[in-house]
Structure formats: C-alpha cells, structure tokens
Nucleic acid binder design. Structure first.
Lengths: 212, 212
DNA sequence: ATTCGCCTCCTACGGAAGTAGGAGACGGGT
DNA sequence: ACCCGTCTCCTACTTCCGTAGGAGGCGAAT
C-alpha cells in the first residue's frame, strides 16, 4: 500500500496521542500514524496488518501493566513495540526490556529527546533511558507474566479474586456462575501457571498489580 | 542520673554508629550516647530506661523493615524514635511517618545537614526530608504492620512459608514440628490479623518483604 | 512459687479446596 | 460444515484447611 513506516499509537489519552503524533512528524522519516485507545483496539488494528512499530502505553483500559505488551509480543513477534509510560520505576523498565520491547519512553521526556528517540526507533535502534535503577528479578518476572498472558479473560478475573482471599463460593457469586465453574477455572489456572494451590496463585497475581 | 539527653544509636554498622556519634558531639546539646547492633539489644537497652531518643536503622538483624519501629513504639510510646536508613523510597518514608517516628534521616545526608537535623530532633522537632514521593496507602500499611508486629517469631516464620504457597504439611516439615502445631499457629495468625484464610495471610505478608 | 507467654501436640469434625472426567452451548475462523 | 477455544455445569472423590477445645512443657518475670 504505502512505503511509509506504519506506526500505531496505543494510548488512552487523546491529548497524548496527538503529542506523540506531532513528535513523529518532526522525525526524518516518513510515517503513517494509526491510533488506538485500548488493548482491544490495538490488537484489532494489528490484525489488519502492515504495522511496523507500536508505541504502547502500559496503562490502558483492557489490561493494566505488562500483560498487554506480552500479549502483543506473543501474537505479533515481528512487530516492534516501544513502551511509553508515566511510570518511571526501575523494576518496570527491566521487565519491559526483558519482555522484548524495543524501547522505553518516559512521558516526562523533553520533546526534542523524544523526537531523536523516535528517529532511532523508526530505524530499529533500541532506546532505553539511562539512570534508572535496574530491577533484579526481571527474568523470572517476565517468565511469570508470560504465563499470566496465557490466561483467558475469565480466568484472569478469577485469579484477581483469588488474590483478594475470596472463597470459590464468593468468586462464583461475584461472577454470577456456579461454584463448579469456578473450580474448573481454578484448576486450569494452576495448570497454566504451573502451581498447585491458590496461595501461590495470589502471589503470582502480584506481578500484574504492583507496577502501581 | 545524668542531665544529658540520652540517645541510643541502633545500627548494625559500627562505622556508622561512630559517624552518628561524632555528629552528635557537634550539636549544641549535651548528649550521652548508648549503642545497639540488633533489635534485641535495642529493646534490652530501652528496658533499662532513661532513653530519650532512639536513632534506628530499619535494616538490622532480628527484624527487617518496619517491624522493629512498630515494636519499639508499642512498648515504649514515650521514647522518641528517628529512623536512619539507606532506603530512600517514598513508600517507606510515609510508613515511617505514620508509624509515629519523629524523623527520617537518609544515610546520604551531608554531615552538616545531619547535625542540624539532630539538633532539631534533640529539641523534639520532627525532621523529614523534602522531595521524596509520598506513599499513598500509608495508613492502611501501618495498620497492617502493627498487626504483624503482634505475631510471635514462630508465627512469623509460619506466615512467611504460607506466603510461599506451602502446605501445612510442608511447613511442619520445614520447621520440624507436627502439622497440628502448624495448624494452631495458623489459626492464631488469622485471629491476630483479623482474616480468615491463608491466601489473605500471604497478601498480608507482602508488607514485610516488599520494602526491598 | 506462681503466673504468663510461647511452643508443642492431640482428637474430632465440618467445610473448602482441588482433581478427574464428561458434557452441552456459543462464536469465530478455515 | 467443521473445528477450536471459551465458558458453562455436573458428579464423585480425595485431600487439605480451619476451628474447637484441651493439655503439657519450658523459660522469664514478679
């Protein structure tokens, strides 16, 4: 279709999408911009093909934290993804890095820095800010999150309630299904996460909620 | 006995105890210094009486994190405590504040700043550094840690193993006691923390391990 | 000398958790 | 038309959890 580089901006803040879009026009590369405001619409646009680079906000409706990133990397390994986020904690940076993102752009960056970073990203050059603390457990973290990404939406809901200490009975009431159904989900969660009780599941779920 | 202000330096680093002791001699107040290198010896010295101010390191043998602070505040509410630590994370600061500490002294402080801060503390003036992020959940956190502080050592061990997803049977093997004993501890833990299952207990335990 | 906190262990029981295996319904994709 | 993933629900069974209530030993404090 086009010879431009296709960029998808995935962020739930319209203002910020415009700001990044603006920055992209100042790069030395011809780009064509698509936008998405949720993980769902992001995946949908990716399915339509032709995307070269995704600029992804980690805090979006549909899936908080790293789940979205991993999901995209799983389903579209050939698409470059750079994370754009307000969260500047070092732990997240390490996770993003190990999860295979091409770059990490703090929202606090100066515009000119952003432009030059984008310039590099469009040419396939990784970009990571310096000076941020390196997390330690990044490899284990990413492995954990990769497993979490295999859970179906309903299973993720069940897991979240397990992590709040809910009984199967309470979870059933909350999700308006039978307790036997919950048990089915629970067993499947254990199988996917390679664990054998709900307390371990609760700890696992931490990975999705800690990043503030 | 003496009319000096009695200061107890509780830190497991001898060098640092000396540094603080040195800083104290440069203040405008007459002080008498005691030292302790563990939570146990700190509490012991407090029991002997006459302490006006404790300069407490949060990372000491015997009890990591905020547990030591809460314990001291519980047993000796009339003694002023200022926390001295290498950990500069905002979350900890908020917790320390809400836990009733008189001040928070980062180990990275310049000597002259330290002296003036100590001068204030000796006169009962609170000291908290500026520019550190305020944690959000501080009140709930402190309430949680206050409850955790009521656990006996063995109960804390059991809790830590629960948080790793261990079965009662495994915990029994690990601590070399019978499973029935573990069950007794578990029930008591639930009563003290005001919860009703081990998954909630595991989440509770996070407060003791997250602060790095 | 007695009290108190902590740790240990027991029986007995009801309820919850977790597994195994099967089954029907729906929707999307090939 | 068919497969596949997801969600739903079921029975039956074992194991684990958690509570209740009691009991003995031990060390520290009063």
């Amino acid at each position: 279709m086009t010879e431009d580089i296709e960029v998808l901006i995935a962020d739930d803040h319209p203002l910020f999408r415009n700001a990044i879009s603006e920055a992209l026009t100042n790069t030395q590369t011809l780009v064509h911009v698509s936008q998405a405001d949720s993980l769902e619409s992001t995946l949908q646009r990716l399915n339509e093909g032709n995307i070269d680079l995704v600029l992804l906000d980690l805090k979006m409706p549909g899936s908080e934290g790293l789940l979205g990133l991993i999901q995209i990397r799983n389903q579209f390994p050939e698409v470059a993804v750079a994370v754009v986020t307000a969260n500047e904690a070092g732990r997240t940076l390490a996770q993003v890095k190990a999860a295979g993102a091409l770059g990490y752009l703090p929202k606090s960056m100066a515009l000119e820095d952003l432009v030059s970073a984008l310039d590099g990203l469009l040419r396939g050059t990784p970009f990571y800010p310096e000076g941020l603390n390196q997390g330690v457990d990044s490899q284990d973290d990413v492995e954990a999150i990769r497993k979490l990404a295999t859970l179906t939406p309903q299973q993720q809901r069940v897991l979240a309630l397990i992590a709040r200490g809910f009984l199967n009975k309470q979870i059933a009431y909350e999700l308006d299904v039978k307790e036997t159904t919950v048990k089915t989900h629970v067993s499947e969660i254990f199988r996917k996460l390679d664990i054998y009780n709900r307390t371990q599941a609760a700890m696992y779920n931490q990975y999705l909620e800690v990043p503030e």
